[in-house]
Amino acid sequence: MTIIKTGDKTVKIRSIVSAVFALGAVPASAQSSVTLYGVVDTNVEYVNRVGSVPLPTNFYNSGLGHSVVRMNSGGVAGSRWGLRGEEDLGGGMKSLFVLEGGFQADTGALEMPSTLFDRQAYVGLRSNSFGQLTFGRQYTSLFLGLANFMPASYAVQYEPIAVIAGPNFRENNTVQYAAAAGPVTAIAHWSFGVGLSLPPTSPFAQQVMVGGNGEMPGRFRADTGYGAALIYMPGAFGFTVDYDQYNPSIAQGSGTNKRAAVAASYTFDGKAKVMGGYRWGQNKDQNGLTVLRDDYYWLGANYQWTPVVELTLEYDYENVRRLNGNAAVANPWQLIFMARYSLSKRTDLYLSTAYARNAGLMLESSASGYGASLFLNNSYAPGVGQTSMIGVAAGVRHIF
């Protein structure tokens, strides 16, 4: 068995789809390998007008907004470590596994309490002819499909990942199939129980977000999820079409949370990449009543200003058409700017800043269920009466 340390390509989130299908990770003479990889990303951040996440313990009241200076784990990437392995079975067939866990670099704690490999944990088979089939905790098809079309590349600060792909963008108990033919990649998945469990952030929040592990006798539909993605990237131009659904348990029934997305990108001279897209969303409760109906749009670009400096600009806009019967919700929007300076292939410095209107950073609002704050253990909920928020973070990322 060979232990291999990896560089930027193994963990770079914008290459996540390519990593799923990469076939050349092992030397031709090797029969098996295990790769150790990871990221440590820490920053110091200033945010204004921050309140508490609305929860039953504070009677769903975020309180007054205050400025805060804090140290965070995760800026351009979440801190993590992982093991990736494969064995050549012959005849163009390989077995493979991935175990990946997130941690808080500022405290050393697990990213998700009591879960060692919260990011990914799966095993499967890959065939040169028939594609890849994997089993375990995995990213949804929609999340993977959009990975190469998000300007901030799913940055922990401040891209609204949970608004884009849903709080269920990683799902337990998942069977996933992926195959590539030329410039076309297809992905499909089914989860027997998404494993999503978040506290309610309003009297209606459980109908928007919470699910569970499912797999209950007599309730096959409970907490299940499924989706598909089609990605076309022949060269400078790229395009994707994606769908995701999960069915959270509510009382003795199941709701439906649905998302469909299209996105495109174009690369100019290898230095500038422009990308954007649209995501349709609809959440219904166990009685078929619409809890949330929204449209989400994004537009942005990456620019390689110098060989060591990359700039990112992104605009996000959410049109909340209906929220718990209210059709007159102020629409959240956000502007992000990021600058990254590479000290080497494995270490870089970065500056991230964002301004949000009608929501907190990452578009945190009652429409999002404050999912990002709950996942990150750092509130971006605006204080009572606040309609805007600004954040600035400076940090360092090291890849191993």
Score class of each variant (00 low, 15 high):
I4W: 09
G7H: 12
R14S: 15
S15E: 15
S15W: 10
S18F: 04
A19V: 00
A19I: 02
F21H: 15
L23H: 11
G24M: 04
P27W: 11
S29I: 12
A30K: 11
S32W: 08
V34Q: 07
Y37I: 11
V40I: 14
N48V: 03
R49S: 15
G51C: 09
S52I: 10
V53C: 05
L55Q: 09
N61R: 07
G63M: 11
V68F: 08
R70E: 11
G75H: 04
A77W: 00
S79Q: 08
R84G: 04
G85A: 08
E87K: 14
E87P: 00
G90M: 01
G91I: 06
M93A: 12
K94G: 05
F97C: 06
V98H: 13
L99E: 01
E100I: 06
D106V: 06
A109W: 10
A109N: 14
M112S: 13
M112N: 12
S114G: 01
L116A: 02
L116R: 02
S129H: 13
T140K: 08
L146S: 00
M150K: 02
P151F: 09
S153C: 09
Y158W: 12
E159M: 01
P167C: 05
E171H: 05
E171N: 13
N173D: 13
T174G: 05
T174P: 00
V175W: 06
Q176A: 06
A178G: 13
A180W: 00
G182Y: 07
T185Y: 09
H189E: 03
F192K: 04
L196S: 10
L198D: 09
T201E: 05
S202I: 03
P203K: 10
F204L: 11
G211T: 06
N213I: 07
G214E: 01
E215C: 08
E215D: 15
M216A: 13
P217V: 09
P217H: 05
R221W: 05
G225P: 00
G227V: 03
A229H: 13
A236G: 14
G238H: 10
T240D: 10
Y243K: 04
Q245T: 05
Q252A: 15
G253H: 09
G253T: 04
S254A: 14
T256E: 08
K258G: 03
A261N: 00
Y266C: 05
Y266A: 01
D269P: 05
A272G: 03
A272C: 09
V274A: 13
Y278S: 02
W280S: 09
G281A: 03
N283E: 08
N287K: 11
T290I: 15
D294H: 14
D295K: 13
Y297G: 01
L299V: 07
L299C: 07
L299G: 15
V308D: 08
V308I: 14
T312M: 15
Y315A: 10
D316S: 09
N319Y: 11
N324D: 15
A327F: 08
A328Y: 14
A330D: 12
Q334T: 07
Q334P: 00
I336D: 14
R340F: 02
Y341G: 10
Y341I: 14
S342E: 11
S342P: 04
K345G: 11
R357P: 01
G360H: 03
M362H: 12
L363H: 02
S365L: 00
L376M: 02
P382K: 07
V384N: 12
G385Q: 03
V392G: 12
G395Y: 06
